[in-house]
Design a protein around this nucleic acid. Structure first.
Lengths: 227, 227
DNA sequence: AAAGACATTATCAAATTGTTAACTAAATAA
DNA sequence: TTATTTAGTTAACAATTTGATAATGTCTTT
């Protein structure tokens, strides 16, 4: 199964700063979102639930301290790393930023490479289960990737690895049709070649084990999760 | 329950620096140890297993980079926070320090208060399993890491070191599947290479010694604790 | 130096899982 | 309707993964 890239949100009112930091973070393999002021930062944080947020202290609408304080008051952002960025180099704000729940405090001007290094170092320390811990629940069906098991009407059903990964993929976007090619590349990988009937057989086994009709065939196209 | 104070080791060849930082850290509630050069830092680290080590880069005997590299090559210090301190303010050493496994890199002169803030912020982030040995209890099974023993139905079972660590890891998050890779890096460390069957053999021994079925195999994926 | 405990490896057996093939059923297009 | 394509079913087989056991090496203790 593929793992999603780590998401980072940058909030700064200077477009130049945004651009250069974005560039380096993207190059380092992160998925980058941006915001130009404090209010937008909060909106985008709620929209994308990034794993790390870089906040300039001095921003319009809401400053970095306020955004930091807001994020820390929400359990949703418990695990989100917050890096504060500022041109002010005074001890008091440094300490204030950390006490408000910031994970790092960096003075401008900052070398983008150093910033990327620092963020990477922070990620080394936090639990790996931070962002890819997505349990799927639809009605009385629970699909739990951390336990590799599915619970239907309170009853646990053990699926084999490929079966589970296939079901998890389809259920990750209920209703959306996955082409056979997509399924192959996501579950089997791009360099594995398997025959035409392989997917069908796995679908059949899932249907049999769960005993419900949660995977719908879209003839000539692919399969979708529907329950 | 009484919790032990957090232990911090400071290594710097300037007595003045040691003194002022010690003072502030002690005031903040940490238990402080000191070393005047790199070799002494390693000795004291092994002796006291501190939770955090502050290393000056330029020290006699062994410099901070060398000490950092040495510590990081030892699984014993996996969870130990390392803060690098230097008067050199160049990008290259900053990045080098973080890449060698440092958790923070701070330029002198540094306000002691800011340093204490930064260290406190780092401790907020690390997983609680670091050095605080918490007892795990599930039904009639007790796993006690302070004594390295397990008690099942009132009867004590002595597991070997690796067996115990493996069981402790799995039981720390009951139900969650640990991939073989995760198990290897958590129990054996990142740089140790052991064969395919090693984990299995240890699992088998745990099952045999405890005589209960508390570790479930998830074929092709890993193992989980389930009891 | 010998004995014992532990960690690791090797080997093979056993079980599970994945894939294919052959055939049947169903849907679609001509 | 009939031909054609696509999907479902089943069973057989291949591949993979794990379990069990013994053997080896290493380290500590006596």
């Amino acid at each position: 199964m593929e793992t999603n890239p780590i998401k980072i949100l940058i909030a700064d009112d200077e477009p130049d700063i945004i651009e250069i930091i974005s560039f380096h973070l993207t190059k380092a393999g992160f998925e980058v979102f941006t915001a130009k002021d404090g209010s937008e930062a909060i909106e985008k944080a709620q929209l994308y639930t990034p794993d790390c947020i870089i906040l300039d202290i001095m921003m319009p609408k809401r400053n970095g301290f306020e955004v930091c304080e807001y994020l820390r008051s929400n359990k949703q952002f418990d695990k989100t790393l917050i890096v504060l960025l500022t041109a002010l180099n005074d001890e008091a704000s440094h300490i204030k930023g950390l006490e408000l729940g910031g994970d790092d405090f960096v003075n401008k001007p900052i070398s983008p490479k150093v910033l990327v290094s620092r963020i990477t170092a922070l990620f080394r320390r936090i639990q790996p289960t931070a962002s890819d811990n997505k349990l799927i629940q639809v009605k009385d069906l629970v699909i739990d990737p951390t336990q590799y098991k599915t619970i239907l009407k309170g009853e646990t059903h053990i699926l084999a690895k490929k079966e589970f990964e296939l079901l998890f993929l389809l259920a990750s976007q209920p209703g959306r049709v996955f082409l056979r090619n997509e399924i192959l590349s996501q579950v089997w990988g791009n360099d594995v070649i398997v025959g035409d009937r392989t997917i069908d057989v796995h679908v059949r086994k899932i249907r049999a084990k769960l005993g419900i009709d949660c995977i719908t065939t879209v003839k000539g196209v692919g399969y979708k999760f529907d329950y």
